[in-house]
């Protein structure tokens, strides 16, 4: 192994071997170009060529299998939290909001909608969370939030049946922004229906009166100004998924 292995080979045989090797080589290189073009010619599935989308969905199956409630995002002391919290996106917040009239629409099943006021939500056990908020763009910021755990909310409103479904769908009151989230992530102990930031009520641009804080997901899933929550066994529509992003977007 350590010594060079030297062979004798006739010119003719070497030429033959070279020709075969280079033909294969060129076929391989052409094949990669062809595969690349083929992928991009495939019909789009939510903004992504179908073969790529299928792999992304497989990634979800792989990684969601391993996510448990014991996987917790790292938490920090409140002093580590940013005072000036980055604002990134106002889709679904542009229409005027009648703050006095706002109520959360909880759709337990089609035709069975519960309206819940902010005071009722604030009356539930409060959970504080300082964690590193991660945007899909690549930046992150340690921020300070408080609200009710979605799992506590589920207990209070007896949503056991509903949470046996595969997904929860959330949308803004004007339905301009909407997300779909797998139930395991929704029921994760760090997932909050959040009404406070830095110890004060959420500012309007951070989703007053109620937003989602879900540390196991990128920021695109932390929907601001929740209007409706509903449950579904198939994937609820998702704003950024429709624009080519990963549906799961899990961390």
């Amino acid at each position: 192994m350590n010594d060079k292995e030297v062979i004798l080979i006739s010119s003719k045989k070497f030429r033959k071997r070279s020709v075969i090797a280079f033909i294969l080589f060129v076929i391989f290189l052409a094949g990669t170009v062809f595969a690349w073009k083929w992928i991009h010619k495939q019909p789009d599935m939510a903004g992504v060529p179908q073969p790529l989308r299928k792999v992304l969905n497989t990634n979800e199956n792989i990684f969601s299998n391993f996510l448990t409630d014991k996987h917790l995002a790292e938490t920090y002391p409140r002093s580590a939290a940013a005072k000036r919290v980055r604002v990134n996106g106002d889709i679904g917040l542009k229409s005027t909001l009648d703050t006095m009239a706002w109520k959360l629409k909880l759709v337990r099943s089609p035709g069975d909608t519960l309206l819940i006021g902010l005071a009722d939500i604030k009356a539930l056990p409060k959970t504080e969370l300082v964690f590193n908020f991660k945007c899909i763009e690549g930046w992150s910021q340690i921020t300070d939030w408080a609200g009710v755990r979605f799992s506590d909310f589920v207990k209070k409103y007896h949503l056991n049946q509903e949470t046996h479904m595969n997904y929860a769908g959330l949308s803004t009151p004007d339905d301009k922004y909407y997300v779909g989230i797998d139930m395991a992530s929704m029921m994760h102990p760090q997932t909050l229906l959040c009404y406070e930031m830095n110890g004060k009520p959420l500012p309007l641009n951070q989703g007053y009166p109620l937003r989602l804080i879900i540390p196991v997901k990128y920021g695109i899933k932390h929907i601001k100004r929740i209007g409706t929550i509903y449950f579904s066994n198939i994937r609820p529509p998702d704003y950024w998924y429709e624009r080519g992003y990963d549906y799961y977007s899990g961390l």
Partner: peptide, 24 residues
């Protein structure tokens, strides 16, 4: 009499494939 090229067996087949797959 046959003239033979002397050649060093340099890169095993597997290395060559893995190398060229890695490139793109």
């Amino acid at each position: 009499i046959r003239h033979m090229k002397k050649a060093e067996k340099k890169h095993p087949l597997a290395i060559r494939w893995l190398h060229w797959i890695n490139f793109p």
